[in-house]
Each structure stands twice: as structure tokens, then as C-alpha cells.
Amino acid sequence: MAAKFELYKDNAGEFRFRLKAGNGENILASEGYKAKSSAENGIESVKKNASDDARYEKKETASGKHMFNLKSTNGQVVGTSQSYESASGRDNGIESVKKNAPDARVEDLTA
């Protein structure tokens, strides 16, 4: 199975997207957007910025786990990873986004 973006509506009625790897694992998730078009723009921003190492912000959570944010050219966070046990797991997650996001199809689950 190829990687894909899932565009969906959350329980609060906001639009969100997640990038799923070919194995079905979530590798990146968005914030909530009031408008569907804003979420769609977020997907395009992820596709555009995914290959640029400088767009990734590597972080450690308060509990000592590792995660990352993908930022757009204006510095806004467009996607956040899950938490990883190790820095190498996080780095593998970044590589997965870089490899999968640019060509991932969009599955609209709001229709």
C-alpha cells in the first residue's frame, strides 16, 4: 500500500489531515482547521516542504520521548509527529515523511 494523506473532520468539527505510511502507521498529523481549504493548503505545504531538512524541528517531550515538527517557509508548524522512544526512531520518521509525502495521494474522508 502506498502512503496517503487522510483528510477528515474531528469531533469538534475541525478539518485535519494525517500522513500514513504504506504500512498504515501515522507519521505526521496536522492541527485543526476551521475551513477544509485550509487543511488542503496544509497538505500542499507538507508536500512542498517535506524534502527540506531545514524545515524539521527535532524536539524532546517532557517525558523524554522524541518527536518532530515540520514547518512551512513562514515558520508555522504544518505537521507534528507521534512520540518515538529513541532519537533514531524519530529520525526514521523524518526520513519516512521526506520519502512519502511529496507523492502521497489524498483520501478525502469528509465527503
Results as ranks from 00 to 15, higher is better:
K59V: 06
I94L: 07
L28T: 00
R55C: 02
S88C: 07
A39H: 02
M1P: 03
A54W: 06
K48Q: 12
T73F: 09
E44Y: 04
Y8I: 03
M1H: 10
K4E: 08
R18M: 09
V46M: 03
G79S: 06
S51P: 05
A39L: 02
E95T: 08
I43C: 00
E60Q: 15
E107I: 04
D53F: 04
P102N: 06
R90S: 02
G75A: 05
A2Y: 05
K59Y: 09
H66G: 07
E95M: 09
F15K: 01
N23H: 10
A3N: 01
N69G: 08
F17W: 03
K59I: 08
A101G: 04
G24D: 10
V46I: 14
K58S: 11
E31C: 05
M1W: 11
S45D: 06
R55I: 00
K48I: 04
D53H: 06
R16G: 03
E95N: 11
R90N: 03
L19H: 00
S96D: 03
M67D: 08
S83C: 11
A104N: 02
E14N: 14
A87G: 10
K59Q: 11
S63W: 09
T61V: 13
F68C: 03
V77L: 07
F5K: 02
S38Q: 07
N69M: 08
K58C: 09
L70A: 01
A29Q: 14
F15W: 07
N49L: 03
K98H: 08
V97R: 00
F5N: 02
K36A: 04
T110G: 06
K65G: 07
A2L: 09
F5A: 01
G32A: 08
K9N: 10
